[in-house]
Amino acid sequence: MQAPGAPGSPASSGSTNGEPIDEQEALARLRQSEDASLQYYAAWWLGRNRSRHPEAVPLLLEALRQRRPRDPGAGVEENAVARNAARALGKLGEASAIPDLLATLEDGDDGLREAAARALGELRADAAVAPLLRRLASGPQGAGAQRSDSPRLQEPCEAMLEALGAIGVGGEAVCAVVEPFTGHERPLIRSAACRALLQLTGEARWASDLVALLVHPHLQVRRAALMDLGAVGWRPALEPICRSLAENSLKLIALRGLVEHGEAHEPHTKTTAVLDAMDTLL
């Protein structure tokens, strides 16, 4: 789940003075390789502004291949550039990037695998289903277990589960891999698994777990549930979403999802009802 302001959207890049740049400047910054922080910002910029310039994708694919081991003291590492490149390629809807992103899904850097998984989800890449299932097959105790050296999990499970839901290829094999994660100890992982199952099966039982998370004591969990219900467009959750204790901005994003993705779920909840609810949150 990407909350607004997540890493990858530079609030202030050290090497810019905060002035807005244009497309030519972004491409120039991405082209050079002496200053990684400029590349980092440029990759983000191209994705955020949905660049259609013919050089954008080749340069982003180049940047996707840049690697440098993580060195906390060195400022912005090269892998961070690759991560922003992956995110941007997802936002650009660039299907030709799928092979490179599939390769990135096998990288040793789990942050990079996370960005690649999200991008493949945005691209609805059917070819990603098999590798994602392979990586998640070991379940909550394997892929979902915590690493010894950090609070992160062995695999970026949240991103991978969401990607499976977004790609939309369902069936027994997929559900068999995803379902165990609905019992993971971390609520954010459970939320991602329920969201994916809801998207893949449309079965209301997966929604009730998500709706219950809307009243979880932790704000972070409530936010995740809001985003997940919005991504699915689960209209029966209209009331609980409105009542949830969270920022109006997130509720508005969730309700937008109900409007744009939700026609199939509970046809009785008309679009007008969701729009009226959105109005009250402005």
């Binding site: 744009e260 007008t272 729009l275 959105m278």
Partner: peptide
């Protein structure tokens, strides 16, 4: 470009 904005304006 945003569907929900189109819908709200139409409403």
């Amino acid at each position: 470009e945003t569907p929900v904005v189109q819908l709200r304006a139409r409403l």
